[in-house]
Structure formats: C-alpha cells, structure tokens
C-alpha cells in the first residue's frame, strides 16, 4: 500500500485494542460485583478483534485469531456450560445445580462461585467465538474494501 491515509486510525487503534481486550476481561471477572458477565465480555472481546481486522485487514486478524480457533472456541464454550450441568448431575445434583459442583457443607458457597465462574467462561467463549465466526464469514466474502464503499 503506497499511501496510508488511515494512519491516525491505525495509531489510535493500536492504543485502544489492548484496553478493549483488558476491559473485556474486567467485565468478565467483575461480573459478580458490578454489571457485566460473559455475554458482554464476549462481545467486547470480539469487538476488539473485529476492530483489529477492520484496521489492519482480515488476513492479519486471521493470523492473530484463526477462524478455526474461533469456531472451536464457540462450540467449546457451549459445551463447557453444558458440562458444568452434567458434572452437577454426576455428583448427585440436578442439572446445573452448582451446589454439587464441589463437595461442601450445606452453607458453603464455593460451589456456586465456581459454577458461576465456569459457566460465565463458557458464555464468554461461546459468544466471542460465535461473533468472530460470523464476522469472518462476512469479511471473508469481501476481503478488500474499497474506500469508495464507505
């Protein structure tokens, strides 16, 4: 590329993308105390990657997060969520009963905590993976975006 009139964009993005990603993880792990959780975090994370793809090109983004990885992430997240439920069933509880995730006394909250953290991770993976898959499916169709198109 001879002339790069997106230079400001690139510079700003380089600065913003790590913050966005970091923010995603904040939203994820602070969900117990403030608004947020896997859904929002997954979306924000995906937005970070998408921003990267928009600025630096889809090919670069694919090198960073391969499409296969995104797909696998999506289905892994979905499975992870379900398997917490099944795990509780195997431990003698009902489906998704986090009290049975780990053996503990009747007043213990660790089961709930761990359960929620794991399923929120599942949500994060599933949402981020699905969003990226969708984005790649669109972007892969039109690799080159002409400036006139905007």
């Amino acid at each position: 590329m001879k002339t790069d009139h997106h230079v400001i964009l690139r510079v700003t993005a380089k600065f913003l993308i790590p913050i966005i990603t970091l923010y995603a993880f904040y939203v994820q792990f602070h969900g117990d105390y403030s608004p947020g959780g896997g859904f929002q975090a997954g979306v924000i994370f995906a937005v970070g990657i998408i921003l990267y793809a928009l600025i630096f090109g889809v090919v670069e983004a694919l090198r960073l997060v391969p499409a296969t990885f995104a797909r696998t992430l999506a289905l892994f997240g979905f499975l992870l969520y379900g398997s917490v439920g099944v795990w509780a069933m195997l431990n003698g509880g009902l489906f998704l009963d986090y009290d049975f995730v780990i053996p503990e006394g009747p007043d213990g909250h660790w089961g709930q905590h761990i359960g929620i953290i794991v399923i929120e991770l599942g949500v994060l993976f599933a949402v981020a993976g699905s969003m990226l898959t969708i984005f790649y499916a669109f972007a892969g169709r039109a690799p080159e975006i002409d400036d006139e198109d905007w």
Partner: peptide
Amino acid sequence: FIAGVAVALLLGFGERSL
C-alpha cells in the same frame, strides 16, 4: 451458537473464500 452455525452454513467459511 446457532447464530454462528447459521451464518457459517449460509455464507460458508470465510477464510476459505478469502
């Protein structure tokens, strides 16, 4: 998840056409 599957099914895998 199904939304992701749906788009992949209809548009194909982006990286291949790319």
